[in-house]
Design a binder for these strands. Structure first.
Lengths: 333, 333
DNA sequence: TGCTATACTAAAAACGATTATGAGCAAAAA
DNA sequence: TTTTTGCTCATAATCGTTTTTAGTATAGCA
């Protein structure tokens, strides 16, 4: 128990150079003679010196850390995004401060502020609902921000997503084309733009193109949980729906099991398309047909976009729209 | 676009006090006259001052940040732990730096080092496999560390887990008691202590107590994925197993669907118990009986233990063993 | 009135890096 | 030989806090 922390100053002294030189070799600055560099590296190794990132952050005003606000890590949709984010973050030598928000705007604002206090170089925000309070915080912050997997109606900040309108329209059309007159739409709160604006719009467009009337009683709001889906099926049945487009995989899994538990055969008597194409879609029996959002990629691209913003590189477009697909499995005819 | 960052010095000047005084009111130090405190708070509010956590971290040598090493956020088992960790972390005003390791020891060591460079106040490590390299890093680090959901054979660091031996023994016994002569054990790599030592031991104990011979051909190693489970079932069948204890829910889900896909009826012709009691167990049809590890709690307790260590409080026990249960559902008779 | 105790506040020194600025020196050019 | 050029490297300022040290003002007391 001899020494405490060993600092750049210690290695400078041991190596008979100045701290500036040590700093240079640590940071790979080329202005160091190979012999000197070697000497310094040896001392670093011998002393087991590890640069203090906090001090470095203070001096350089860069923390190589980005904040990630996530509704709930436990939700496969978001954790898939998070995985993409983390992978490209480490690729670019950034670390991730992860904070769960429960999509509660008060918590979000608070979290955002502690993240900014910690001087993160950038922020990634996940969550469908961009409350006014958080939007306000966004706009007065100088820190680069990008939204992953959700849409920013006024394009203040960067965002990466898919064309939800088109995706839902395509999926709904598929359901209509296979003979369903009454296709239900089951999503999260319509107050959230992704549901109330985009998904609903896509749904209506599909209906309109097929010459079907829009029937409000076929639109269901629900939290995104398995149990909610289980309970939901009876309502769908009551409303006379013979097919449903569901906005979340867990929820869809619930609806599916709800149907099965009622003795309804899927897809023969009830067809279902879900939206996120997580692993869950393959675990269900029958496996679920799904809109295929490239979740991992959305996260990865969002982080990549953020790195560009942090580097002050030119961005062609703040909003990146990735392609989607519909993966056909066994829950549709 | 007038001012850059506003510092403690600015508010001191505006409020006609010293920076030390501002520091005191920000940190809730009682040695400040109420009137002064009020005045300072007003200025802070007016200038929209936000303390720089990096500078604070440098000066105080505390970052109120803990590092969390996780194999994969996308795995429900670990994300459940992570959620517990994050919740109590925020409760104690800590933030979480989350890093995926893929249970790759090289990555782990690297991640650990960058975390330490960032001066985290503590570390939580998840993962079944504690490689020698990581163990070595642990032992020469002065930073408090606790393991969540895994066992430390030499109790160098803190850890929170359940009694895996007893849990597996109980589950296996259950399977034997319901008439199965050939119970398979399906887990991750036996090289990992949790599998090769604890689970296997529990399994053997159950066998021994029931007077059954241990048959190596009934023990299967597998990665913890749904697809691996799907493929695994045929092997179980070939080995003549009529029941299985599976170490991971996704894997178990795969085994279950594998059985179903083969036309085997569960639990009539094949019984199954899984180990983690994640949401998945309820989604399966039939729902899966499971050892019930309190995942969220393990995470939460681990973080709580870590806070105590970081505060240098006395710890009664570095290893905390939580209780477990077996939740009976429909995959057992 | 003078002295001590009390209650705060001010100034300055860390904390451990980064980064201008410019000095020293050898090689090249004049 | 002298001047210029180009590398290397050292000095010192700076980043925004916390924390220690040294006060100062007020009040209490004899």
């Amino acid at each position: 128990m001899e020494k405490q922390t060993i600092t750049i100053y210690d290695v400078a002294r041991e190596a008979n150079v100045s701290m500036a030189t040590v700093s240079r070799v640590v940071n790979g600055n080329p202005n160091v003679k190979p012999a000197t560099r070697k000497k310094v590296l040896e001392v670093i190794d011998r002393l087991d010196y590890r640069p203090n990132a906090v001090a470095r952050g203070l001096a350089s005003k860069k923390t190589t850390t980005v904040g990630v606000i996530i509704p709930d890590v436990t939700n496969m949709f978001f954790s898939s995004l998070a995985r993409g984010i983390d992978d490209v973050a480490t690729m670019y030598k950034y670390n991730i401060i992860l904070a769960n928000s429960d999509e509660n705007s008060q918590k979000e604002v608070q979290v955002l502020n502690t993240l900014l206090a910690k001087q993160v170089d950038g922020l990634i925000y996940m969550g469908h609902d961009i409350s006014d309070s958080i939007r306000q915080e966004f706009s007065r912050s100088k820190t680069p921000i990008v939204l992953a997997g959700s849409v920013d109606p006024d394009e203040q900040v960067g965002s990466v997503n898919i064309d939800y309108v088109a995706a839902v329209e395509a999926a709904t059309t598929r359901l209509i084309d296979s003979g369903n007159q009454k296709v239900a739409l089951v999503t999260g709160p319509l107050a959230q733009p992704i549901n109330g604006q985009y998904r609903l719009q896509g749904y209506k467009q599909a209906l309109a193109k097929a010459g079907l009337a829009y029937d409000e009683s076929l639109v269901f709001e629900s939290e995104a949980s398995y149990h909610a889906g289980l309970a939901m099926f009876k309502q769908l049945q009551k409303a006379g729906a013979t097919a449903a487009l569901v906005g979340d995989d867990e929820l869809a899994f619930g609806v599916l099991d709800g149907a099965l538990d009622e003795g309804i055969s899927v897809p023969a008597d009830f067809e279902l398309i879900t939206s996120n194409n997580t692993k869950l879609t393959e675990m269900a029996r029958p496996q679920m047909t799904s809109i295929d959002q490239p979740l991992y990629d959305i996260g990865a691209v969002a982080m990549r976009l953020l790195t560009k913003m942090m580097n002050k590189e030119d961005i062609d477009a703040k909003t990146i729209r990735l392609g989607f697909d519909i993966t056909t499995r066994k829950s549709t005819k």
